[in-house]
Design a protein around this nucleic acid. Structure first.
Lengths: 311, 311
DNA sequence: TTGTAAGCGTTATCAA
DNA sequence: TTGATAACGCTTACAA
């Protein structure tokens, strides 16, 4: 039945006929117990809602189901304890492998985890010691591209609304940002930088802070789309016309970016493909589908829309 | 260990000490095989991405995990075949129960399904024959509330952009809409109705169609937020000021509604709570947590923001 | 209150 | 190529 052993055509048919007649359905649980494979992969994300994780789950589920594996989900809410509990929960469920999108847990914890029995893939996080287990975006390049897009339009005074500095992706994006400034001979002005929270409120608070700083600027680069949206709202409420008086660029290219007005120019984060790739990593490494190609780091790219104007 | 049998304190302690010392972890799969319970519930949604399903999953996961059950996910993509396959898949995975958000599959199919072995809850769908298995929103009331909000502001000529007529929720919303018109002595004008697709494009196409119809109107009611957003974009591109020249109201209260400008007045769809309730239904009926209260139909309510003005 | 043993429905091994 | 049988790690019923 499982087409592994060598069976004659005749017996095969006999077996299949019998299956049909009896309405036989293999018991996946008994199979799991006997084979020591649950055929499930556990997925831990920060939040189940939100534009980002949905796309990721979507990519993972499609890839997994194509191979008859199932996805078990859990939320970590960006809190260390909850994330650890979630991981524990999934392991106790006997998942054959885990896909983790965790933020609060430490690098060391993850490095230890990888040494364990169950295979692990990390999404949106790069830890050199376990580089092969990481599927990540080149955030530095993304930060660079965003700044370049602004600088190429002639802006010389550009503000930056960053993500939380402790988050790796936020600091990488800022690093790329600075690199681009240097390349264009624009000196980086710390007074024109605000540390946001990756939420809408960080964007509005950020723009307010920047405006109050009395430093002139003609463009603001936001480390993600939600903050860009917040900044846009704040600008509108204060009668600053975008992009005429102020250019704005975001990061992530979440669906929202096309809905707001003006349509937001941003950096594309191919999260769905990365989810798919994480699933593929597992298919290859855990389920031995050796023919699959796996790519560990993805490149962001510029999506040009309407929120930037030449200066 | 499972604290069901009567065991003396002493033995209990002895057992737990032994567990700690040996680092014993029960094997969930063996438990499942022996007890004929997988402790999993399968969840089928149309799409994993999108603002709607994420909230729903979020509600379900939280409720389930509190009881040590896990959620297995699958996507149905609003296509009959895929939905059926998804259900098959989840059943073959031996889920103890299923939560379904399906659109393409017929009522009869679902009624038959409910007669089967595995317990089923339907979200966002009401089928009288299996009313107890349905967790749904009073869409008619929602349609009524939306229209009422507009009519109370003095609008007499109101256009309507509907969802696909074959979808139950769309026709219910329209029914409520008509009821409100009647109550306010406004005659329903079929020429001011457009059948959209619940997507952004349906909203822009819809507004274009309505404008071309040469029938005057001062407000447009959209059967969901995405279409409202599309209509708003179209209006802006054609220099129609919202809400000054045209009032718009949406439905669903997805996160987007707060992000767009002007902030969208809409009808709240408590999808997260409904997801939670679906999970609770299962906890109660399948896992015998009899103390839980279950509510089958939810009431929508008006969320007032900035897209409506008195006429 | 404690101990014992027969399943649960497969996979995998080995002999025929 | 086929058939028989011992795991897999639990739950549960029953005996002690």
């Amino acid at each position: 039945m499982n087409k592994n052993a060598k069976v004659s055509e005749k017996t095969l048919k006999k077996v299949q006929d019998a299956m049909d007649q009896l309405g036989y359905r293999p018991n996946a649980i008994a199979q799991s117990l006997a084979s020591n494979r649950s055929n499930s992969v556990g997925i831990l994300v920060s939040e189940l809602h939100g534009p980002f994780y949905g796309s990721m789950l979507s990519g993972i589920e499609a890839e997994l189901r194509g191979s008859q594996k199932h996805a078990i989900i859990a939320a970590g809410h960006s809190e260390e304890e909850t994330e650890k509990e979630g991981i524990e929960f999934l392991i106790s469920r006997r998942c054959d492998a885990l896909i983790l999108h965790v933020e609060a847990v430490s690098d060391e914890y993850l490095v230890d985890l990888v040494k364990n029995e169950v295979p692990i893939v990390l999404i949106n996080r790069f830890i050199p010691a376990i580089a092969d287990n990481c599927i990540s975006l080149n955030n530095e390049l993304g930060g660079y591209l965003a700044a370049k897009a602004i600088l190429e339009q002639g802006h010389k005074e550009v503000a930056y609304i960053s993500g939380p500095n402790w988050k790796m992706d936020a600091s990488d994006r800022l690093k790329g940002h600075k690199k681009a400034l240097q390349e264009f001979n624009v000196t980086y002005n710390p007074k024109l930088t605000y540390e946001g929270d990756y939420q809408e409120v960080g964007g509005s608070d950020g723009l307010e802070y920047l405006l109050n700083s009395k430093q002139p600027f003609t463009a603001v680069i936001c480390a993600n789309d939600e903050m860009a949206s917040g900044a846009m709202t704040f600008a509108r409420e204060h009668r600053i016309s975008i992009p005429k008086e102020l250019s704005i660029i975001g990061f992530d290219n979440i669906i929202l970016a096309q809905y707001i007005y003006p349509k937001l120019t941003t950096i594309d984060y191919p999260i769905k493909q990365m989810g798919q790739m994480a699933a593929r990593w597992i298919l290859k490494n855990t389920f031995k589908q050796t023919d699959l190609e796996v790519k560990n780091v993805f490149e962001p790219k510029l999506i040009t829309r309407d929120s930037i104007l030449a200066h």
